[in-house]
Nucleic acid binder design. Structure first.
Length: 794
DNA sequence: GCCTGGTCTCTACCC
DNA sequence: ACGGGTAGAGACCAGGCG
């Protein structure tokens, strides 16, 4: 019989010495099914030097005792060059590593390949099937899979095939949130119980599992109840925020302490750690939305509440912070609020899921990694898995990951801006410049011709400045990949034109074209990453060299047309907007340089300082575009950001500097009167390394240490929020985590002189206003101010 | 011992 | 654990200062 299903998750098991691929899916009839394939064997390749094939085959077949089943000669390519290889088929996946080591020692073997690719992924790649897509397979009913929680189990009798079908089946999704109660600082699973487990199903069913006991609540019961509920509801996806780093490990540890089993998978087992710090729940998807938080760069502090607010799910006011939990729990009049809050967070999780799931599903399908993996994988790995798939299609061996030390190379050109206010400025940019360069000049690891090699007959493209050569023919690996991505994207965009936004297909296709864009744009970065399997420095170096030459040529053309250039960065030039000339420029750029260009936007007014990469533009829609300035930075206090934004609002809308100065004066007075809440004084900074590794003392590091001492858990990548307190000495001595601080400790004068004034004078300086001078010569700080200040500090 | 200027460290941004 | 180019704050340190 033929079985068609949507592939949710997969894993492998071993039964009677035979590896089995288990594919968990959703059938056409909406049944949950498991398809087992016993017909696939693990394998890897070895490249063989000239004339030693026979001998190598003989030697490798001697390894049969170790688990080698077969050894087959095969013509492959490595970096585009044909090589003689043998495919070594093995009995069991976990024997591959050992056998590969032995094979590498065989005389005549030059290298082994593919032994570092996981069995389940190998299967997906070889079969040409992808997670989160429809698959068809010839099957028979399977016997002996009793412990598995699905409606049907099948045994594949033939290789599965990909089915072209777009729509996602109805998935059962369960949003999860837990609230834990610590005595001090962050709750610790070894010590502190989970007091509330909140779940929300996609159908809207809310469940709160609430621990009993006031002072020392016990969570044994609720973990069991929760486990039972998961089993009963039987979700395809368990979604949360921070599941991999926090929530699942916490629940696991609590379950262990209570001697109960957290069996929330479809195999009566517990969650287990897997690739890239991901936790697998067999048969289901453990989706961690935190992995997608990075996509929202506007959100600086990536808390569940902030992301949910950004996506319009729920506003972030009235937050209960972790350290406040016990106050709420222990106070009977407030406990209800805490329980409600826990459920609110489950709702936030579900809301975010709904906003990003289409994209996540499409990314999984495009890259070919299971839905829960693809999120956890860093961008470089997403690109790489996509490439590995393509390599397989092209008969390319997958290069080993090598340790290559950092090799710097020159990047893009950034022009010195013309400071001051400008009216009517057009921004012209090259569309997808780096991908286009790679396409046009066939820049790829397999087309690169090293200096010692002779020029091939087909001829070469030579990169300007650096002189790297790339063969014109045949199309390189990157060109092929980018071409198929670009074609796929334009096909989708055509389809999108013909359907309405209400069509369920619309969301799917739109998400897919976004996924394609993300991967295309990451290709250049991947090419320059020393950790990349296909890393060749010259590839990345040539791309940027062509980029510099393109932008320089465009600048020259602008000059020839007498267009005044105001600024430019990498692939864009800002010119005085004279419509006819600008149109001419775009035409010339496209005609003579052969790259697509366009007028990206027109600013009614734009303000530059002396600095590159920082400006503010008034757009035609009346909105302000802040670029690089403090307003858009996460490491400045809100008081400074708001002051700068206020000044920009005045200046950009023609209010004039006088008004701006008055605004700042009033703003500062407000600060001195204590009108701004503590929250607006918090400075956030990321911990980018372990605390001991910092070479200089810094405020956020000091603050982090203070938090640790109070029992808070902080890890690499966490953001520390601190304020600057009154007192003397170095700044780092005056820093204090906001959780431990109160408003009367604030060193308001520090914030005025080191935050508000720098941020605002940055804007006014290029307009000829020295705000510092104005403020210090004024009567802002009278004797009375000092007396008042004395009063508040003592 | 204090001030100064230069350099280094650190973070977050732009494209 | 995707690239290079850049701004800016603050720590740190050597040298000047009779």
């Amino acid at each position: 019989m033929k079985v068609k299903f949507w592939l949710l998750d997969l894993n492998y098991e071993e039964k009677a010495e035979t590896p089995e691929i288990w594919m968990w899916g959703i059938g056409e009839d909406n049944k949950r099914i498991l398809v087992v394939d016993r017909n696939f064997k693990p394998y890897f390749y070895a490249t063989v030097s000239e004339n030693s094939l026979e001998e190598v085959l003989r030697e490798i077949l001697k390894l049969k005792v170790k688990g080698v089943l077969d050894c087959i000669p095969q013509d492959m390519k490595i970096f585009g060059k044909p090589v003689k290889a043998v495919k070594i088929v093995c009995r069991k996946p976990d024997e591959v590593g050992e056998i590969a080591k032995d094979v590498k020692r065989v005389r005549g073997v030059t290298e082994v390949y593919g032994d570092d690719i996981r069995f389940t992924l190998r299967y997906l790649i070889d079969m040409g099937i992808k997670p989160c897509s429809w698959i068809e397979v010839e099957c028979e009913k399977a016997e002996g899979y009793g412990g598995v929680k699905v409606d049907e189990v099948y045994l594949a009798t033939a290789p599965p095939r990909n089915v072209e079908e777009e729509l996602t089946p109805n998935l059962k999704v369960l949003a999860l949130w837990i609230t834990c109660m610590g005595e001090a600082g962050s709750p610790k699973p070894e010590r502190d119980p989970v007091i509330i487990i909140s779940t929300l199903s996609c159908e809207g069913v809310e469940k709160n599992f609430i621990a009993k006991g006031d002072e020392k609540p016990s969570d044994a019961e609720i973990i069991v109840e929760f486990t039972r509920y998961v089993d009963e509801y039987d979700p395809d996806i368990i979604v949360s925020y921070g599941s991999n780093a926090r929530i699942i490990p916490y629940l696991l540890e609590r379950a262990k302490r209570n001697r109960v089993k957290l069996s929330i998978d479809r195999q009566r087992g517990e969650p287990h750690t897997s690739l890239y710090g991901h936790i697998s729940i067999t048969g289901r998807i453990n989706l961690d939305l935190f992995d997608y938080a990075e996509e929202f760069q506007e959100v600086k502090v990536k808390s569940l509440e902030n992301i949910a607010e950004y996506l319009g799910v729920m506003d972030a006011s009235e937050i209960i912070e972790e350290y406040e939990v016990q106050d709420y729990w222990k106070d009977p009049s407030k406990r209800g609020e805490l329980i409600e809050y826990s459920m609110k967070n489950a709702k936030r999780v579900m809301g975010i899921y709904k906003a990003i799931s289409d994209f996540a599903i499409q990314l999984s399908q495009l890259v070919g990694l299971p839905l829960d993996f693809v999120g956890t994988a860093a961008v470089g790995f997403r690109v790489e898995w996509f490439l590995i798939r393509k390599a397989h299609e092209m008969g390319e061996l997958v290069p080993k990951r090598r340790e290559i030390s950092y090799q710097p190379y020159a990047g893009a050109i950034v022009l010195q801006p013309k400071p001051g206010l400008h009216e009517n400025v057009a921004v012209i940019d090259f569309r997808s410049m780096y991908p286009s360069i790679m396409l046009k000049y066939n820049v790829s690891p397999d087309t690169y011709i090293p200096p010692e090699e002779a020029e091939p007959e087909c001829g070469v493209y030579i990169a300007p400045e650096v002189g790297h050569r790339f063969r014109r023919e045949p199309p390189g690996f990157y060109r092929d990949v980018l071409k198929s991505l670009m074609e796929a994207r334009s096909t989708i965009r055509e389809k999108l034109k013909n359907i309405t936004q209400e069509d369920p297909l619309y969301k799917v296709l739109d998400a897919r074209q976004k996924a394609i864009k993300v991967i295309s744009n990451a290709m250049y970065g991947y090419a320059g990453w020393t950790g990349a399997r296909w890393y060749i420095k010259q590839v990345a170096e040539a791309v940027t060299a062509w980029g510099r030459s393109l932008i320089s040529s465009a600048l020259k053309m602008a000059e020839e047309l007498n267009l005044k250039v105001i600024y430019g960065d990498t692939d864009s030039i800002f010119v005085k907007y004279e419509p006819e000339k600008v149109e001419k420029l775009v035409k010339r750029v496209e005609g003579e340089l052969g790259f697509e260009a366009r007028v990206d936007k027109v600013y009614v007014r734009i303000l530059f300082t002396e600095a590159k990469k920082r400006y503010c533009g008034l757009m035609e829609n009346g909105k302000l575009d802040f670029v690089g300035l403090e307003v858009v930075r996460g490491d400045w206090a809100e008081v400074a950001k708001k002051a700068q934004e206020g000044v920009l609002e005045i200046i950009m809308r023609g209010g004039g500097t006088g008004k701006a100065i008055e605004y700042i004066k009033e703003y500062i007075n407000g600060m001195r009167r204590g009108e701004k809440p503590l929250k607006e004084y918090i400075i956030w900074k990321t911990l980018t390394k372990d605390l001991e590794e910092y070479e200089v003392r810094a405020p956020h590091v000091q603050a982090a240490k203070m938090l640790m001492e109070k029992g808070y858990t902080l890890t690499l990548g966490d953001k520390v929020g601190y304020i600057i307190t009154l007192g003397s000495g170095k700044l780092y001595e005056k820093a204090k985590p906001y959780q431990l601080a109160s408003k009367n400790e604030l060193d308001i004068e520090y914030y005025i002189s080191n935050q508000v004034i720098p941020a605002t004078s940055r804007i006014l300086e290029p307009l000829g206003v020295n705000i510092q001078k104005i403020l210090s010569s004024g009567t802002t700080r009278t004797l009375m101010d000092y007396i008042k200040k004395e009063k508040t500090t003592t």
